[in-house]
């Protein structure tokens, strides 16, 4: 049941618990999924609708939009890491590629932003597809290295080809134009990014509940077992890899137009690490965890900015403590606590 708030069970204990609980509630699986997915989507929508009441100025909108952009990447990356069990330390490369495709096509070639975005997404999709098979043959840390390498190569190309990209100092990006109006300012961007995020979450939840999702969970548990059961594991892995890369590219394109300026830092290694950290901190195999992870790690530096020199000391400590005491991530852990609390009160 609530598999989006609990990583696909490694331990037999967790599985058994799920099983017994499933027996005790007399609702069909479809109904449960519906309510759960609907519930999650409804609360996300609620947050998105209510949040602007608390956003006092353009800076607050900036933070909110950045959360949204990161969340889109992380929701996609979570499909790969949380469900397919494949790590990627190179997703900032895809993000950067999306951003720079939009930047270069609109700034140098005068293409419309709404045309450049799908071109970037498609290009990244094709690239991801091309490298997916050789790369995803690898496992564990070798896969981490390979994806890291891919990201680094993209980053190097972006920062070296200064005639096209402006080099390490970056380049300006024209404003996005929709129906003849230029998209500028926090509120407009807020709604665009919010809508894209909702779409990404909806796609992700649907994918998880589809046969593909079930196959993926099998993959995460044991690839060999899944193979024995007749699942074409490579095909599914490639598919999820491409989907997550495309989501990153779309977010990158939006980010480029939103910030009107792109630098190769968008594609660098530490940015990739940040995305993975958001997935893990929020909770692997939890779509809403991904959103929360993105929110927490985008907000945190804003809070810590006031601590000046101690910013990194505190950030490192928080990362360690959360992962030590909540190894499953914020959302699954808190959800389990809430469930336990609810059960106790019911009793």
């Amino acid at each position: 049941m609530a598999h989006n708030v609990r990583p696909s069970g490694y331990s037999k204990f967790a599985k058994k618990q799920t099983y017994t609980r499933r027996m005790s509630t007399r609702k069909s699986r479809a109904q449960m999924l519906l309510s759960e997915r609907g519930g999650g989507m409804a609360s996300l929508l609620l947050v998105i609708l209510v949040l602007p009441l608390f956003l006092a100025n353009d800076y607050h909108y900036d933070v909110a939009v950045n959360i949204g952009i990161n969340a889109i990447v992380v929701v996609g990356l979570n499909l790969l890491i949380g469900y397919a069990g494949q790590i990627s330390l190179g997703h900032a490369g895809f993000f950067g590629l999306g951003a720079y495709t939009s930047a270069v096509l609109t700034a140098h070639y005068g293409l419309h932003g709404l045309l450049a975005l799908p071109i970037g997404a498609l290009g990244v999709g094709v690239l991801a597809y091309a490298i997916a098979r050789p790369v995803l043959r690898l496992s564990g840390h070798y896969l981490a290295m390979a994806t890291l390498g891919v990201g680094l190569i993209i980053n190097i190309i972006i920062s070296r080809e200064a005639w096209l990209t402006g080099g390490p100092d970056g380049m300006y990006v024209p404003l996005l134009e929709v129906f003849g109006t230029e998209v500028y300012g926090g509120p407009m961007w807020y709604w665009i990014v919010a809508a894209t995020l909702l779409l990404a979450v909806w796609l992700s939840l649907n994918l998880i509940d589809s046969p593909v999702g079930r196959a993926l969970r099998g993959l995460h548990g044991s690839e060999v077992a899944a193979q024995v059961a007749g699942v074409d594991t490579t095909r599914y892995k490639v598919m999820v890899f491409v989907i997550s890369a495309v989501m990153a590219a779309v977010a990158g394109s939006l980010a480029a137009h939103f910030s009107e300026f792109v630098t190769p830092a968008k594609a660098d290694f530490s940015h990739s690490i940040l995305f993975v950290t958001m997935v893990v901190l929020g909770g692997m195999a939890s779509t809403f965890g991904a959103v929360v992870g993105a929110a927490v790690l985008t907000l945190l530096p804003q809070f810590l900015a006031d601590f000046a020199d101690y910013e990194h000391v505190i950030l490192g400590l928080i990362m360690m403590t959360v992962m030590i005491f909540m190894p499953k991530g914020l959302v699954p852990t808190l959800a389990a606590l809430a469930r336990r609390g609810a059960r106790r009160t019911a009793r």
Binding site: P7, I81, I87, G140, H141, A144, I273, V276, T277, V279, V280, L281, M284, D309, Y310, E311, H312, V313, I314, L315, G316, L317, I318, M319, M320, M323, I324, F325, P327
Partner: peptide, 27 residues
């Protein structure tokens, strides 16, 4: 303390430790 955690979780812990150590030394 995180012995039973997932490989990726352990990676994040060591990355956090790296950030922490850099922070302490810079201060």
């Amino acid at each position: 303390p995180a012995r039973d955690a997932n490989v990726v979780t352990l990676i994040i812990i060591t990355i956090g430790a790296g950030i922490f150590l850099r922070g302490v030394v810079s201060v």
